[in-house]
Design a protein around this nucleic acid. Structure first.
Length: 114
DNA sequence: TTAGTGACTGCAT
DNA sequence: CATGCAGCCACTA
């Protein structure tokens, strides 16, 4: 769909913007759709940068593969992320995990392929 | 060009 | 289950 001109970061941002309200997806999933299955960690970094740079993307809809919110020290952001998701109807249990099975968003089209 | 960074992940314990 | 850890990767300075 896109000419290979765009960077990994561009594809990631585009994909995250496709996640519907009330749905979530994982770093690994975005990385896979963006064409680099093992770059989940890099996706996390990009989400961090997007927030820092005030990019207009629903970064809060991206969580880890265990269905939880990755805090890694930034409890402040983690709580905000949880509030934003709960406001969209995504519930978290006592262990801080949501029903990924039911809430996971999956792209309905093959966006990127080499 | 290179080394440092970290919102990840799967597997072993 | 929960923890720990090594492997992986794109972005930055």
């Amino acid at each position: 769909m896109n000419s290979g001109q765009d960077s990994f970061a561009d594809r990631v941002y585009w994909l995250v913007c496709q996640i519907p309200h009330g749905m979530v997806t994982t770093y690994g999933q975005i990385a896979t759709y963006a064409g680099s299955p093992r770059a989940a960690r890099a996706v996390g970094n990009l989400m961090r940068l997007s927030l820092k740079n005030g990019r207009d993307v629903p970064w809060h809809r991206v969580i880890n593969a265990r269905g939880a919110i990755s805090s890694k020290g930034d409890t402040e952001r983690a709580e905000l992320q949880r509030r934003l998701l709960e406001a969209e109807g995504v519930a978290f249990d006592e262990r801080g995990r949501c029903n990924l099975e039911a809430r996971r968003w999956e792209s309905d089209e093959v966006y990127w392929h080499e």
